[in-house]
Amino acid sequence: MSILDNVKNLFGFTPSQPAPAVNATEAPAEPVAETPKPAPQGPPPAGQRRDQLLRFIVDKLRPYQNEPETTPSGFKLCIVPENGEEEELYRVALWDSQPGKFQKELSRQLADNYIKLPKNWRFEYTFYSDALPDCTYREGNLGLLVLDDSKPTGPPKRARISALVGQTEQTDYTLDPAQKTMFCIGRGHSVQTTSGRVRTNDIVILNDDDPAFTAEKGRGNGAVSRSHATIRYDVAQQRYALLVDPGGLPSSGNKTKVFHPDDTIERADIPGMGYPLQHGDQIELGGEVVLLFELY
């Protein structure tokens, strides 16, 4: 120890400690990698929900195994989801964006279980926010309503007819199946048919000798037959159809068409045949008068 160090010790000063040496070759510690979580086993949530729906429907329809003559014309699946997220999951499971795909898969599974439905069987599904409606079968938040075309599934549907081109006696006409199921269309109020029976038109295309007739609105009315067509309501199937009467057929020198909302055109030229009507259809009579058909 040097004289200077002795003096420092005498007066209470201690020598400073040298800083610990740093090993330049020591590498910084590597971060510990997290162990990856195992991937969930089994099908994804939508696939599981799809399997649940298929099992539910197939199980409930087992009474129809090997009974092709008694199978229903279709059925309606009713669902009460807990929230919007679950509803979206059900929509994915039902292939909501690919119409017909779920029905095709269901048809295959029903056939595998010896349940044979009619060729054009119907499948529908509806979501309910509170509770299931009256259903043929129920299980938890699912319900299955068997559709029978021979029985109406609700109150009769009312419709309205109004003129887009041409002049009718009324601005619009209400078709109420609770009152009657056949509605005659023709020019004038009544006409005597070839059988001698007097036909009364429910939807009146004004004749040029009617007091309310105006040449501007009704200039094409003369192309409409006095007994041109009839709209019939099918109570069992709950739908309307157009039937062309003799005066509206090509054999009488006339014509009748139905313009559908999807821009397709249907020529109604077969006697006795019913042409189904849907909301928004336009019925052309004689190539001049156009009536709008609406459900409400």
Rank of each mutant, 00 (worst) to 15 (best):
N201W: 07
L117A: 06
L206G: 03
L10Y: 08
Y233A: 00
D245E: 15
Y125F: 15
P156F: 02
S190Q: 15
P133R: 00
D269S: 14
E139H: 15
N141E: 05
I115G: 09
I265Q: 13
M273L: 15
G280M: 03
A29E: 11
A21C: 01
Q192D: 09
F56E: 01
A33K: 14
K257A: 11
G74Q: 02
D209W: 08
R219D: 12
L292P: 00
Q282Y: 02
E34N: 07
G12D: 13
G218K: 15
P43R: 13
K37Y: 07
L142R: 05
L206Q: 04
Q167D: 04
G274C: 01
V224D: 04
R62T: 14
F11I: 14
F127M: 01
Y275I: 01
G47W: 05
P261Q: 08
H228C: 02
V289F: 09
T174C: 11
Q278D: 07
A215W: 11
T35D: 07
R267A: 10
A46D: 14
P43G: 05
Y64A: 01
S162C: 09
V58H: 09
P43D: 08
T264F: 01
R199L: 15
L147S: 06
V7C: 09
P72Q: 08
L295N: 00
G218I: 04
E266G: 00
R55K: 11
Q192G: 01
V7F: 12
V92N: 03
G84I: 06
L145F: 12
F102G: 05
P36K: 10
A33D: 12
Y137G: 03
D281K: 04
D263E: 10
R91H: 05
